[in-house]
Design a protein around this nucleic acid. Structure first.
Lengths: 114, 114
DNA sequence: GTGTTATTTCGAGAATTCTCGAAATGTCTT
DNA sequence: AAGACATTTCGAGAATTCTCGAAATAACAC
């Protein structure tokens, strides 16, 4: 994951409804949840939710599959893992970024951006 | 860290210049970096940078101290750690959210929000 | 105190994001 | 095929965020 992808993922999660939706999908695990149920649980209009699911999807954080007339969304755990890895590596100095923080400089310039 | 705080932190990092600034500060470690140097390295006007630094600061991700006429900013590693912890706990199902993902439901309702 | 350097605050315009009803699309049932 | 259901796309208005020059604030040097 490069900085551009990380920003996309961070932006996607940095919104009340999208974070809530994503947490619901994490909770739901592999099975996922149909869009309608997410909208209902979040108490927002379908069209609004659809907008947010598109954002999450474009950021690569969720995936879609059809089941009858329902579109079932599920969390992409690998992408989420990639995000936390990026944050730990680039924004914590490599370690769990815990307390003491002399923390080795992360001189990296590993990505050519997009 | 609750969802509201997490959204603030995510929003703060979900922006090109702010993510770059924060990475610079992580690299700089404890010592931090004066505002002017950050603006220079990022090649953006001081006033723009100041805006972004305020955002990072309000999200609790950086702190400020004065050194002569310079304001020196430094990363708040504890806050960053809190964010990754939140993401791991709430958006990964508790585990490193790695691959297999039956992942125990995170039924939590641990926070009353702000 | 005057001048210089470092940085922030103000203000306004540009750009982006969010919201949600109405219409369109795709699927199932009969 | 017609009707119902699940969801998305479209479009436009509302809200928020980003940008940056100019003016204000703070600290130092003389």
């Amino acid at each position: 994951m490069n900085a551009t992808q990380a920003i996309a993922a961070l932006s996607a999660l940095a919104q009340e409804h999208r974070l809530a939706a994503f947490r619901l999908l994490v909770e739901a695990g592999r099975d996922g949840l149909p869009a309608g149920q997410i909208a209902e649980r979040l108490a927002i209009p379908n069209s609004s939710l659809s907008f947010h699911l598109t954002q999450l999807s474009e950021a690569g954080l969720v995936q879609q599959r059809r089941d009858g007339r329902s579109l079932v969304y599920s969390a992409n755990f690998a992408a989420m893992n990639g995000l936390t890895a990026f944050l730990t590596e680039n924004c914590c100095g490599g370690e769990s970024c815990a307390g003491d923080a002399a923390i080795g400089p992360v001189t990296g310039e590993e990505e050519t951006a997009a």
